[in-house]
Amino acid sequence: MKYISCYLCILFFLVGCGRQLPVVQKLAPLPVQGSCSIAVLPFLNESTYAQGGAIVNKVFLSELAGSGHFQILQEGDVLDLYQQLFLYPNQLPNREQLKMMGGRLNPDLFVGGVVQKMATNKTGNFVDTELTLILLLYDGKSGEMLWTTYHRRLGEEYQQILHLGRINTITGLVRRMSQEIITDWFKQGMTPCTE
């Protein structure tokens, strides 16, 4: 019994340290009509990685579109509105501005976010990659913040046997983490397009 409790303690400790699922915080329910049409806002880049926000924006948008469950609004339209509202791509719109964008683009949801940390470090023949993301989901009509998602992963966490599975590029890590976030959103009750 003593050994079993010790083993369980160590197991919980290891599992606790290596939390690999995105953390979703629900501030308000998602739109009743579903989350079919999504406008992806430019991501803020708080990391030192050049163009980190733009990379996450492109890859996350592609993964959302590639999932086949959403209609993704054209990135050009979002950027066009940013320009009209005098917003820099490295800036999050306020609720009033989101409401205005919602009136023009008519999405069900806005997805924006912050790249908190994006880093690569060469170790031997491999590259250590690290990414910390915060995603923010806003209502497409009112601009109200509905969900937030925090996700942090290292490329080496995907390593299985030898060097297999290890993610050596930052784009690869963004892609993998985007897939994990989208899958988790579905599990959390996000309703995709029905058509």
């Binding site: 492109k58 948008l61 579109a65 590639g66 491999f126 050596n168 690869g172």
Partner: peptide, 18 residues
Amino acid sequence: DARIVWAQTRNLSYSDLI
């Protein structure tokens, strides 16, 4: 209708081919 019908992200590093 200006809808995205296919999207792909591909990445490859020399480390992946060692």
